[in-house]
């Protein structure tokens, strides 16, 4: 399941979708909105996606992960729209026969999604706003 959604992510549902009876491990990454960046308070984040391409890129990432690790199930849900601090922005869940593969596959998927999927976020502060990572002098870990 690959989902780009404006609605609240039901983490339990993502996990259930990725679960398999033949799996001995389910690994879940939950990304949340931080309330601070560069020493300033973040009021909210605006997420935007090029949805058709984002789904396609995530599918390629899952295909690659499936070749490298014995995935028995997987699911990804990514929020778009306005998110307040503490809200869940992304959930990746994978299941594999044993735990090490589940950690490695889950980390590969979230790292590569962050690197390649056409999804953007803008931080909104009390005194302005900034598209994250857009400019060289604004390079921070997102």
């Amino acid at each position: 399941m690959i989902k780009i959604t404006e609605k609240h992510i039901d983490v339990q549902k993502v996990i259930e979708t990725a679960t398999s009876l033949s799996a001995g491990a389910v690994n879940v990454f939950i990304g949340t909105v931080r309330n601070n960046a560069h020493g300033k308070n973040v009021l909210w984040l605006e997420y935007e996606a090029y949805e058709t391409m984002a789904v396609g890129e995530i599918r390629k990432i899952i295909d690659e992960a499936s070749q490298r690790w014995p995935l028995l199930g997987w699911a990804i849900s990514h929020r778009i729209g306005t998110l307040k601090p503490g809200e869940v922005s992304v959930v990746v869940a994978v299941s594999t026969p044993h735990r090490k593969d589940s950690f490695d596959a889950c980390q590969f998927i979230i790292d590569t999604v962050k690197e390649k999927a056409p999804i953007w976020k803008k931080e909104v502060f009390e005194d302005g706003e900034e598209w994250i990572s857009a400019r060289p002098e604004m390079e921070f870990k997102g």
């Binding site: 990514h78 979230i110 962050k114 953007w120 976020k121 598209w131 990572s133 997102g142």
Partner: peptide, 25 residues
């Protein structure tokens, strides 16, 4: 919906999009 090479020839029917540095997650 795919990253394109610089030499690719654009057709009228193509959907073309600008992809600045991504920052999902």
């Amino acid at each position: 919906s795919d990253y394109a090479e610089e030499g690719r020839i654009l057709e009228d029917s193509d959907e073309i999009a600008l992809i600045p540095p991504v920052s999902g997650g």
